[in-house]
Simulated scan of single mutants.
Amino acid sequence: MKTYQLAAVPGDGIGVEVIAAGLQVLEALSQHLGGFAFEVTHYPWDSAYYLKHGHYIPEGGLAQLKQADAIFFGAVGSQQVPDHISLWGLRLPICQGFDQYANVRPARVLPGVKSPLHNGEAIDWVIVRENSEGEYSGSGGRVHQGLPIEVATEVSTFTRVGVERIHRFAFELARSRPAKHLTLVTKSNAQRHGMVLWDEVFAEVAKDYPDVRTTRELVDAVTTTMVLKPAQLDVIVATNLHADILSDLAAALSGSLGIAPTANLNPERSFPSMFEPIHGSAFDITGKGVANPIATFWTAALMLEHLGEPAAARHLMQAIEAVTASGLHTPDLGGTATTAQVTDAVIELLRR
């Protein structure tokens, strides 16, 4: 039997609730199918830990995480800690420290879920986000703080190697899907340096993939395509900031942020990859037991695929879709079900 070392970092808010539910589902799945199991190590690196110790990740923490086959991450963010401190204290050091440069966010309307679009059933996208540099590179600074002449700079850093590798990843992904269609999203009419580099490298890489149809859209224009003509899109590749925003829109158009998964991949597998639901800490519903665990379950399916367990991933997705189709929905989808009820329903289907 294959035993995978899984690092669980629940983090803040509903992250604690949904990661616990996800681990229950993974345990039930491994027991039902056999052939693999998870040995879970829990890391209590949340905002309460930060307030007590002055840091999220202790010295040597990344070295501990590096021993894992995958990282199961809940959320980070607290009303007691400024957002830029919590993000740069936990999630981004893992993504950047482990070179998880490919952020992959699928979006489609699951059975039984209603999209706010009248043609929402046409949504079947994968958004590929460059996850290691660009607008979130951390370059920049502030001087003369508090004075009228204060200056703050936020420098978007794009490297040719970083741009080329995310484009190649996106082309390979597009090639594996039936539509074989890849849309490049930039803002190169206004941002004439980094965005133009993205356009140029995309055109160069495209020559190696003649079987993949390509289109190019400006980031503002693609939002209208997503809403009005969703069938025109398949795989989308964009920068760190642009894809971050577009993937939240994609989740909302698919029915709810509560169903949207994320994979932060190191495609070369030099480091462990990290898997997280898209929804964040959600302070407004923390502790109420109504957080939608579907995003975490779908995220777990992405993790199983990455670990080389495609049959288990398919089995889990079938159970997820059967539960959403049944109408057992949490409040974010217009229902009254609790986190535990949805979790139990998925586990029951897995055991059958």
Rank of each mutant, 00 (worst) to 15 (best):
M1Y: 09
Q5A: 07
A8I: 05
G13T: 01
G15S: 03
E17K: 09
I19S: 04
A28S: 06
L33Y: 05
G35R: 08
T41Q: 15
H42F: 11
Y43E: 10
Y56I: 00
Y56V: 04
I57S: 00
P58K: 05
E59Y: 07
E59C: 09
L62Q: 14
Q67S: 11
A68P: 12
D69I: 00
G74S: 04
A75C: 11
S78G: 03
P82Q: 07
L87M: 11
G89Q: 01
Q96R: 15
F98Q: 06
R105S: 03
V109N: 10
P111F: 07
S115G: 11
H118Y: 01
V128F: 06
E130K: 14
S132L: 12
G134N: 08
G140I: 14
G141Q: 13
G141W: 14
H144M: 07
Q145I: 12
E150T: 06
A152V: 15
A152P: 12
F158S: 03
V161E: 14
F169M: 08
L173N: 07
L173F: 08
R175E: 13
S176T: 10
A179C: 00
T186W: 02
N189T: 12
R192M: 13
M195F: 05
M195E: 01
L197N: 10
W198S: 06
V205R: 11
A206Y: 07
E217W: 11
D220R: 12
A221C: 02
M226E: 01
A231F: 05
Q232S: 10
D234Y: 00
V235Q: 00
V237C: 01
T239D: 00
N240S: 06
L241I: 11
D244M: 02
D244K: 06
L249G: 08
A250M: 10
A250W: 12
A250K: 06
A251Q: 14
L253K: 04
I259L: 13
A260W: 13
P261C: 04
T262A: 15
L265P: 06
L265T: 04
N266V: 11
E268F: 11
R269C: 00
F271L: 06
P272Q: 01
P272F: 04
P272R: 02
S273L: 08
I278T: 06
I278K: 14
G280C: 12
F283N: 08
G287D: 02
V290F: 15
N292R: 05
T299M: 09
A300N: 14
M303E: 00
L307D: 06
E309R: 15
P310Y: 11
R314E: 12
G327E: 11
G335H: 04
T336M: 13
T336Y: 08
T339N: 12
T339M: 07
T339R: 07
T343C: 10
V346W: 06
R352I: 04
